[in-house]
């Protein structure tokens, strides 16, 4: 019940934050140099379509009415027409969003699990060679420049070894083959996903490892661990059953806080590997002055970040018995 109330409260806060972002974007689109109408109406549009869209977006109305329309349109998914694709933005975004979610959630999960797992070991062997190596590895991968790392992975695994595809998310051999079923197609997508996933996981597991390590070290000083030791439990049980679940909590928080950061990395990764996701679409739309698409992509990415934040917060509250809101 408590948790439920907390969730509701957070949801409310996030709603407000989102509204602020929505509003800032609205203002930015109006104060930027140039004509706001031509920014939202594609050049390839027929006059009728354009007139229709102008009235739908309220671009012929006073500013505050435009704002009302804008908010309403956002919630009904009407972002106008993409200049480049010549079709409704919502369709383009709808195609790309699942791809981003797939890559994003998998990579966050893998890097967090890797971080927790290795961080635990590092803390357990504090001062030993394993610890030093792991900490150093974490520091290095954490600070490596992401696009460069992606290029190096392409060079090694794509060019030298030729193991993995480096482009897109499907290969036409599989999709044009009438005999390939769902499984074959999933395998194909997974195959394409390996390098982008590797890039993201390598970059992000480091910080989780470091956090897990220090949290674990703190936890090991706690009374209940001493008690457990006194009870004569094996080291393994103490480590895995008593210490690590508590130590993993800060990792959960930091996952939440680094989401915005991971989204940045996601956009870069998608671009380098031509992964048809929403981040790449944003980059593409920016270089093409495709304003409606850029606007929608940005808003949706913000929404994804906010909702994931909420999920992480609730997860945290749920996992930590000490915290009750």
């Amino acid at each position: 019940m408590e948790l439920w109330r907390y969730a509701r409260q957070r949801l409310f806060q996030i709603g407000i934050i989102f509204f602020v972002i929505l509003t800032i974007l609205f203002i930015l689109f109006r104060i930027a140099p140039g004509d706001p109408v031509s920014r939202m109406i594609g050049p390839e549009m027929t006059t009728e379509d354009a007139a229709h869209l102008i009235s739908q977006l309220g671009l012929d109305r006073p500013l505050w009415v435009q704002y009302v329309y804008y908010v309403k349109n956002f919630f009904s998914g009407n972002f106008g027409h993409s200049f480049h694709y010549g079709r409704p933005v919502i369709e383009v975004i709808g195609d790309r969003l699942p791809n981003t979610m797939l890559l994003f959630t998998t990579s966050v999960m893998i890097s967090a699990l890797m971080g927790v797992f290795l961080g635990k070991i590092a803390a357990w062997r504090k001062g030993e060679k394993t610890d030093t190596v792991m900490t150093l590895l974490a520091l290095v991968t954490h600070t490596v420049f992401l696009p460069w790392m992606a290029l190096i992975l392409i060079w090694i695994f794509g060019y030298r070894l030729g193991w993995f595809p480096i482009n897109g998310m499907i290969s036409e051999e599989v999709w044009l083959n009438p005999t390939s079923g769902f499984f074959a197609k999933s395998v194909d997508v997974a195959h394409h996903m390996i390098l982008p996933l590797l890039t993201l996981s390598l970059i992000y597991f480091g910080s989780y490892l470091l956090i897990m390590r220090s949290a674990m070290l703190e936890t090991l000083k706690e009374d209940y661990i001493l008690t457990a030791r006194a009870k004569g439990l094996t080291e393994k049980v103490i480590r895995n059953k008593h210490a690590s679940p508590n130590a993993a909590l800060p990792v959960v928080t930091s996952v939440g806080l680094s989401l915005a950061f991971s989204i940045n990395g996601g956009a870069l990764t998608e671009t380098v590997f031509s992964w048809p996701g929403i981040g790449r679409e944003l980059v593409f739309s920016v270089s093409n002055n495709d304003y409606p698409l850029a606007q929608a992509a940005f808003l949706l990415i913000s929404a994804v970040v906010l909702v994931s934040n909420l999920v992480v917060d609730i997860l945290y509250a749920y996992l930590d018995p000490r915290i009750r809101y």
Partner: peptide, 15 residues
């Protein structure tokens, strides 16, 4: 804090 800085710069570059 929740805004991805890189993407914010991108959108400003677009505008």
């Amino acid at each position: 804090m929740v805004m991805p800085t890189l993407l914010v710069v991108l959108i400003l570059a677009a505008l």
